[in-house]
């Protein structure tokens, strides 16, 4: 079973041999604790960049990860996803893991996160990561929610805080969406303009009505779920969610951008006037 996860179908087809059958027999074992040459070969096939490392380096890195609770299986996925990890000294790897551990997602969840996005092991700045996670926790209330958000949109790591703040405020105050729904979508990966455009389009079509402020939170809404709005391609969003045609949305995007630009220019002028009066 683990093979299916690790390697794609093409590779599997090439390996129809006795060797493979042996591997399959091993795969039924509950946990893989030993790194074997077969694993390395398979990984190299998937990611040729890994071919340059000696078995010693492989063993050392594997041991480091294993000591920190990551199974062989996860290790292989990490290195195939992010070959540069092998280049690093065990100390550096441990440092990164410690930084992540400080976010307090819990061991199991943290391993899931790192296995899903091995690039996250490139983090070196503890202060930056902790600030981000503390900020997200302040908006999303629990560590688990922060973890969920990172699982859905890992690119948050690279976004400045004010941009994230802008999007979150928009979702909380204008769209009136609650934390659980935000956490289940990758809305934060979208740019603010795109998010606002999609939302405004739905509002103008009459398909999205913000919940009244005093509404019972248990009452189901008729609005589309946030993940349906944000985690879809433009075409799917327009045709399947809004049930309109693509040219209409394209014209709308253009018109809305102009409208907002005009509005901001107007408020700017007004502000200048009020300054002069003072």
């Amino acid at each position: 079973m683990w093979r299916r996860v690790l390697f794609n179908a093409q590779n599997v087809q090439q390996l129809k041999s006795v060797n493979l059958r042996q591997l399959a027999a091993k795969a039924t074992a509950p946990k893989l604790l030993q790194l074997e040459q077969v694993h390395i070969d398979e990984a190299v096939k998937l990611e040729p960049a890994l071919a340059i490392y000696t078995p010693e380096i492989w063993r050392r890195a594997h041991e480091t990860f294993q000591n920190h609770g990551l199974e062989t299986m996860s290790f292989l996925r990490i290195v195939t996803g992010n070959p540069n990890v092998l280049k690093r000294t065990p100390d550096r790897i441990i440092n990164t893991l410690e930084i992540w551990r400080a976010c307090q997602f819990g061991e199991n969840l943290l391993h899931l996160l790192l296995t899903k996005y091995p690039e996250l092991l490139d983090v070196t700045d503890a202060h930056q990561l902790l600030t981000l996670s503390a900020y997200l926790k302040s908006r999303l209330s629990t560590n688990k929610n922060v973890w969920k958000v990172l699982m859905n949109s890992p690119d948050l790591m690279a976004q400045p805080e004010n941009l994230i703040e802008e999007k979150l405020t928009y979702m909380f105050e204008v769209m009136r969406i609650e934390v659980p729904e935000i956490v289940k979508s990758s809305a934060l990966s979208l740019s603010f303009e795109e998010l606002r455009c999609r939302h405004t389009f739905l509002v103008r079509l009459g398909l999205f009505k913000p919940r009244p402020l005093k509404a019972d939170p248990n009452e189901p809404t008729t609005n589309h779920r946030l993940y349906q709005i944000t985690d879809t391609s433009e075409k799917t969003f327009v045709t399947k969610i809004c049930h309109v045609t693509l040219p209409e949305y394209e014209a709308f995007k253009e018109l809305l951008a102009r409208e907002l630009e005009r509005k901001s220019r107007k408020t700017q002028v007004e502000e200048e006037f009020s300054d002069e009066e003072v």
């Binding site: 389009f201 103008r204 079509l205 009459g206 049930h243 309109v244 209409e248 709308f252 018109l255 102009r258």
Partner: peptide
């Protein structure tokens, strides 16, 4: 009917 939402979006836009 269903065509109203397209008109609505258009009416509310420039």
């Amino acid at each position: 009917g269903g065509r109203w939402k397209n008109m609505r979006a258009a009416l509310l836009t420039e």
